[in-house]
Amino acid sequence: MSRAEAERRGRKGEALAAWWLRLAGWRILARRVKLAVGEVDIVARRGRTVAFIEVKWRRDAAGLAGAIDAYRLRRVARAAEAIAPKFVHHGDTMRIDVILIAPRCWPRRIANAWQPGA
């Protein structure tokens, strides 16, 4: 798959994840926040919880098994720490989530996928 095709599919996955989050009661605060230390695909809030979300899209459900690893989560965590002051207020809970998406499968959310020191 070409780089452009991978980018197009990634954007489609992020759009589907944002739609799915909205249906679950989350408010999307930002999308595709890129920094030198990493990138956050979606920043979302529900109540007092702010989630910094990594979205992974694969061709099939089998490809989702290895879609996320500690390296990728660390990059998301570093980016989330850098932008947290803009989105997280006193008393809020902050977490890193992952949403895995493949055609003909319901999105799978891994809530609180990254713990500091993990």
Rank of each mutant, 00 (worst) to 15 (best):
D97G: 02
F87S: 02
H90K: 15
V40D: 03
K34D: 12
W114L: 03
E14N: 03
A51C: 02
R72I: 02
A82P: 00
K34N: 12
L29G: 09
A44N: 04
A80K: 01
R48G: 06
A17N: 02
A62M: 12
R74V: 07
N112P: 04
A77Y: 09
I83P: 00
D92P: 00
W20V: 04
A17R: 06
R109A: 15
R72N: 04
A30Y: 09
A77G: 00
R72C: 01
G38W: 00
K12M: 15
R109L: 15
I83K: 00
E39S: 00
R58S: 03
W19A: 06
A6Q: 05
A70W: 10
I96A: 06
G10C: 11
I101L: 15
A77Q: 02
L16C: 02
W114Y: 15
R58K: 08
L29H: 05
R109Y: 14
D97R: 00
G91L: 14
L73E: 00
K56C: 01
A70H: 13
G13C: 06
N112F: 12
K86G: 06
A36C: 03
R48V: 10
R9F: 07
D60Y: 00
G63C: 01
R46D: 05
H90E: 14
I68C: 01
K34H: 14
R8K: 09
I110N: 09
G47Y: 04
R32W: 11
G10A: 14
F87W: 08
R104Q: 11
F52T: 11
W20P: 05
Q115P: 12
I42T: 00
A51Q: 04
D92V: 08
D97V: 02
A70G: 14
A61R: 10
W19E: 12
A113D: 12
A118M: 13
A67E: 11
N112D: 15
V40P: 01
F52Q: 04
D60R: 04
G91E: 15
L73N: 00
G10S: 13
V43N: 07
R9K: 10
S2T: 10
R58H: 05
K86Q: 11
W106V: 08
E5A: 15
R95K: 13
A6C: 03
R75H: 08
V40Q: 09
A61F: 10
R104A: 14
A24K: 14
I99S: 10
A6R: 09
I96T: 10
R78N: 08
L21W: 11
S2H: 12
E5R: 14
K86D: 09
V76A: 05
A61D: 10
E7D: 09
A102R: 14
W20L: 01
W106L: 13
V55K: 01
L23I: 07
W20I: 01
A118P: 13
P85F: 12
P85Q: 08
R3L: 14
R48C: 06
R58Y: 04
R9A: 07
W19L: 10
R3K: 12
V88I: 07
R72T: 08
K86H: 07
E81H: 03
W19K: 13
R45E: 08
G47S: 04
I101S: 12
A67L: 06
P103G: 07
D41P: 05
P103Y: 09
L16G: 05
A80T: 05
A17W: 05
V76G: 01
D69R: 04
